[in-house]
Computed example of a mutant assay.
Amino acid sequence: MAKPKKAETREEKRERAARIFEILDPLYTQEKTALKFKNPLELLIATILSAQCTDKQVNQVTEKLFRKYPSAEDYVKVPIEELEEDIRPTGFFRNKAKSVKGACKGLVEGFGGQVPGTMEELLKLPGVGRKTANCVLGAAFDVPGVVVDTHVKRLAQRLGLTTNTDPNKIETDLAGLLPKERWRRFSDILIYHGREICKARNPAHERCPVAHLCPAAKMT
């Protein structure tokens, strides 16, 4: 009778995460985010709109949106019905319009209309969670952070780097496996790898360069 496989130690998991990083890092050379922006406010708005929407679609919408609303005050003043129509192509436009207006109202009332550069301050804004905050902090302020979107959540679980389902706990797990300077880059790597190879349905294990390090691939 075969002996049960020994559980992976935390140090072994760290070493495996480092190997995954080193293999995938040179394969994905894209920018920190595919969202187009010129300042932190534009990135904040684009990130809110990107929920369950492609970056390409968001960029098409924000090209006109950012010209129409150059400041946080502009988003606060516009009737919500008009804003909903402006962002309709991104989907879930009613909820997103509320989030955009709420966040911008928070910026105007608490930060002089400027996007703050800390997690604590960003989380005070209505409609802004840790994923959005980490996106803004990493791309606009170069502050290290783990961005847990649907791709990162899926890959972190498949790769056996977390057993959690809550995004905040997944963020903590991944942050504990890599040095701070690799947090944002590892998030980007997993996002791009999730889009290209490790898709939600029918992941291409045969083409995956880290399949030998992936528990999910070994089970197929």
Rank of each mutant, 00 (worst) to 15 (best):
143 V>E: 14
133 A>I: 03
77 K>M: 07
120 E>W: 10
95 N>M: 03
151 H>I: 01
156 A>C: 10
114 Q>F: 08
144 P>E: 04
199 K>M: 12
136 V>H: 05
156 A>Y: 03
43 L>G: 02
71 S>I: 03
180 K>T: 13
54 T>H: 10
41 L>P: 12
58 V>N: 06
63 E>L: 09
87 I>K: 01
134 N>H: 09
62 T>Y: 07
155 L>R: 00
207 R>A: 13
128 V>M: 04
186 F>I: 13
204 A>F: 02
147 V>W: 00
162 T>Y: 04
144 P>Y: 06
197 I>G: 00
136 V>C: 09
4 P>L: 06
158 R>D: 08
45 I>D: 00
185 R>Q: 11
48 I>W: 03
25 D>R: 14
148 V>A: 05
114 Q>V: 14
78 V>D: 06
130 R>S: 09
142 D>I: 00
80 I>Y: 03
29 T>S: 15
210 V>W: 02
68 K>N: 05
74 D>A: 15
115 V>P: 03
181 E>F: 06
181 E>I: 08
190 L>A: 11
82 E>R: 11
76 V>D: 05
112 G>L: 09
207 R>Y: 09
121 E>F: 02
108 V>E: 08
106 G>W: 04
27 L>F: 11
174 L>T: 07
136 V>P: 05
219 M>Q: 14
140 A>D: 09
15 E>F: 01
14 R>E: 13
165 T>S: 12
104 C>E: 01
185 R>L: 13
175 A>V: 05
110 G>W: 11
24 L>S: 05
201 R>L: 12
31 E>V: 03
11 E>S: 14
28 Y>G: 07
90 T>V: 14
139 A>W: 02
210 V>T: 08
182 R>E: 13
70 P>E: 10
195 R>K: 15
208 C>L: 04
215 P>Q: 03
62 T>C: 08
210 V>C: 06
121 E>M: 02
26 P>E: 13
206 E>Y: 10
15 E>N: 11
85 E>D: 14
25 D>F: 11
137 L>Q: 03
69 Y>T: 10
18 A>L: 06
204 A>Y: 02
47 T>W: 03
111 F>D: 01
175 A>L: 04
115 V>L: 05
81 E>H: 08
54 T>N: 11
31 E>N: 12
8 E>L: 14
45 I>P: 07
203 P>T: 11
145 G>W: 02
12 E>R: 11
115 V>F: 04
156 A>R: 01
188 D>N: 14
13 K>M: 15
84 E>S: 04
138 G>R: 00
192 Y>R: 13
217 A>G: 13
54 T>E: 12
59 N>K: 11
42 E>P: 08
118 T>W: 05
62 T>A: 02
209 P>H: 09
162 T>V: 07
58 V>R: 04
164 N>P: 00
59 N>V: 06
23 I>R: 15
130 R>K: 14
8 E>I: 12
153 K>S: 13
